[in-house]
Design a protein around this nucleic acid. Structure first.
Lengths: 245, 245
DNA sequence: CACGTTCTGGATGTATACAAGTAGGTCGAT
DNA sequence: ATCGACCTACTTGTATACATCCAGAACGTG
């Protein structure tokens, strides 16, 4: 069922390389060459080339002018840009969903996910995995309700960056209390967004969804005050931080 | 100086294939194979493979589940989605530019382009080429002023679609009078946007820039009422139209 | 000692050979 | 005549050989 079982060498190379980047095996700034990577990924240059191009497109690598790639180093400013952009896009999606809602039955899937999120408010670390999954589906459903497929595709690309994803809510096994508080806030925003869409209050839906995205920003700021917490953040190795790593 | 002179085979393949798609040599729905394309583009499979992946990423091709690619057929709805999305993004860029303007000197490049546009309001067909170029630079400068690099990158990707580009103002050699009227309207909007940014009126700048994008939509609607005009639209071959081609 | 030139190492770009999987057609049997 | 199985042609996935280009170091010369 998982892609790994029947995956092509290219798919494997993409997955492996992405893991190498996110877990810090290749710190930001590292230059990556096809020939150097091929033995590490266990494939020949061709799939490596494919993987490099793909991850460059995702934004995790940057192409060097004279050939080759370098592991991207994200500044805090750039992460802010990504989160702000997600706010803009999800806000617009919520507004369009509100403006274009024709009958309330179209909201049924979103409502169902909202209820499911209510039942899954995380209490322990294992809860978080399921919670983030449902949260993801809730967001995707909202995007779809916008009725603008280009917008959906664009959001999907932005949230490929680990810092910008809707699931960038919480991380780490510590601070569960704080994480739960954050989830409660997020859930109240979810409810308000659905209500605004149902009432066709486009401006309100947009403002709420835009504000909702800022949770990721607050989490990042919190992580930046705590080295241990920061180290557990997905993709932390790619962030250029004020304090030394 | 032009990329063609020193371009790699891959770059040439991308450029050639894009032209084939836009000029109608490969109508929407055509299946494209690496082996079939290689002789037509005069390169081997490797650059063709690269070109196919790249144009699929641009949105002009779609990947088939069982391998291979198909030329994308755009519905009018999808084109509307792209134009609407550009409006959202450029509107946001204008708003951010207004909100973040610190000193008026930062607006100097935009002002200079505005004046240049004034002097280049198109009167003949040859004028249009220069006008569209300056218009493009004006828009790019506005995006940059947003201070959000992710936003800029996202807009750049959206406007790769020929229908969504800011230069999708006018097309064809006929209807010059109408095209000039459109350019006049666009220019008055440009002026209003710059003024709003200068006064830090973010909401106004956003509304104006969003409305500005709709010029492309009006042009499309006009083209849809006139077969001959439609045929001259860039990328017309990729559009699934109500009337038969 | 400094500067220029040359050489070498390594990187990507490109082409192609080979393998594997699939769809469609054709041939045979019932 | 119809249905099933086999086979063929075509396609992509992958690896690799070769060419080319650039950077950096080393060496020679002024």
């Amino acid at each position: 069922m998982d892609a790994r079982s029947t995956a092509s060498q290219s798919d494997r190379a993409v997955i492996l390389l992405r893991e190498l980047l996110l877990d810090g095996s290749c710190p930001a700034g590292t230059r990556l060459t096809e020939l150097g990577l091929a033995p590490r990924l266990g494939v020949s240059r061709t799939p490596v080339r494919h993987a490099l191009a793909r991850l460059a497109h995702e934004g995790l690598l940057e192409e060097l002018p004279r050939g080759g790639y370098r592991v991207r180093a994200f500044t805090v400013d750039e992460i802010w840009s990504a989160i702000e952009l997600r706010g803009i896009l999800e806000g617009s999606a919520a507004r369009l969903a509100a403006e274009r809602l024709t009958d309330a039955t179209a909201l049924a899937p979103l409502r169902r996910l909202l209820i499911e999120l209510d039942h899954r408010l995380p209490r322990s670390l294992t809860d978080f995995v399921a919670y983030v999954q449902i949260n993801d589906r809730f967001h995707r459903e909202m995007w779809t309700l916008s009725g603008n497929r280009m917008l959906v595709a664009t959001i999907e690309q932005v949230v490929r960056l680990p810092f910008a994803a809707p699931g960038a809510l919480v991380f780490g096994d510590a601070e569960v209390a704080e994480a739960r508080w954050t989830a409660d806030l997020a859930q109240s925003q979810h409810q308000a967004i659905v209500e605004a869409i149902e009432r066709r209050e486009g401006a309100r839906a947009e403002a709420l969804a835009r504000e909702h995205a800022l949770i990721a920003w607050k989490n990042l700021q919190r992580a930046l005050t705590n080295k241990a917490l920061f180290a557990r953040m997905p993709g932390a190795a790619l962030v250029r931080v004020p304090f030394a790593v």
